[in-house]
């Protein structure tokens, strides 16, 4: 359904997207995972015809976004990161406007608006001004506004930013429903748990480059069955701990990040007694200790040396 080949987009001399390639099959829920500034929104901008690529090719439904943008626009719906709604109008009027913009009218428009209000769980709030809505309600309306013309492909650009856990959960359920209905979805996020929960396949993007691509299991498999142990001890003992740790069986590597020691181990549970003994022998105070199983965060950390919550440089 979507083919992206060697996509390049520059802002001045800087490449915001640098040679990105991926495919998305019809009905697939594809996640684009990366921190703020990684190039996710720019990629969506090009795919949705709003931005012109400086290189590469993008085809959606067989249409080239550069040469047949109108045909592409008929196929796609876009839900921007911002609440792209008229908050001074009510929910219904917003949907009616976006529907008319896409050529709907009369009974068909009214029917579609009612369907979407129900889908967003806003049927009883249809006449309320959007500015009086909670963040979650706005997000749901923002999302269904992108569905008004029943697109075949939906681009969701960080649709859960700035809302609480409960509201986020409802949005994710809504998106999962859409996926089950066969809609092709490209979902950008910097929340790895969302990508893990929702997406069939995930592309990890960093500094404009796609650094990993695959389903969740295969991506995690790339880093092997390695646990991550984080511990906080006084800085003057880091060197001694590193030297000792590298000698213990099961230790794959030791590093330091944000003032904490990070130990990669084949089995974190086996290494913990060694750590405890070393601390007690040296009288070293332990301020914090965490053990993490392999996940997309560790993958991302391995690939980029940074966490997903950190801004791209």
């Amino acid at each position: 359904m979507i083919e992206v080949r060697d996509l390049v987009k520059k802002y001045g001399p800087q490449k915001a997207v640098d040679g990105v390639s991926f495919d998305v099959a019809r009905g697939e829920l594809f996640g684009l995972l990366g921190p703020n500034g990684a190039g996710k929104t720019t990629t969506i901008g090009v795919l949705s015809t709003l931005l012109r690529a400086d290189g590469g090719q993008v085809r959606i439904g067989g249409h080239d976004v550069a040469t047949a943008p109108s045909a592409v626009r008929r196929l796609i719906g876009v839900v921007p990161q911002e609440i792209a709604l008229y908050t001074d109008l009510n929910a219904r009027d917003n949907l009616v406007f976006w529907g008319r913009l896409h050529g709907l009218g009369g009974a068909a428009l009214n029917r579609r608006v009612e369907e979407l209000l129900v889908l967003a769980d806003l049927a009883d709030q249809a006449r309320r001004r959007v500015e009086t809505f909670s963040g979650g309600m706005m997000r749901r309306l923002n999302l269904v506004a992108g569905l008004i013309h029943q697109p075949e492909v939906l681009f969701l650009d960080e649709p859960t930013v700035g809302i609480d856990a409960q509201a986020r959960s409802r949005i994710l359920e809504l998106i999962a429903d859409l996926g089950r209905q066969g809609l092709t979805v490209i979902y950008t996020t910097h929340y790895l748990e969302e990508a893990e929960q929702l997406c069939d396949r995930i592309g990890v993007i960093d500094r404009g480059r796609l650094v990993a691509l695959g389903d969740k299991e295969s991506l995690i498999g790339q880093i092997g069955d390695v646990d991550l142990i984080r511990l906080a001890i006084p800085a003057d003992r880091h060197e001694a701990f590193t030297a000792a740790c590298l000698g213990w069986e099961g230790c794959v590597g030791v590093g330091e990040r944000r003032g904490r020691i990070e130990v990669r181990a084949r089995d974190g549970g086996q290494l913990l007694p060694h750590i405890q003994a070393w601390l007690e022998a040296g009288g070293v105070p332990l301020e914090q200790l965490e053990v993490e199983r392999p996940n997309l965060e560790t993958l991302y950390l391995n690939l980029t040396g940074r966490g997903l919550r950190e801004e791209a440089p």
Partner: peptide, 14 residues
């Protein structure tokens, strides 16, 4: 433009 409603309109046909 800042609210992105402009961009959303530009995604309409025509």
């Amino acid at each position: 433009r800042a609210r992105r409603t402009l961009q959303r309109q530009l995604l309409g046909p025509g």
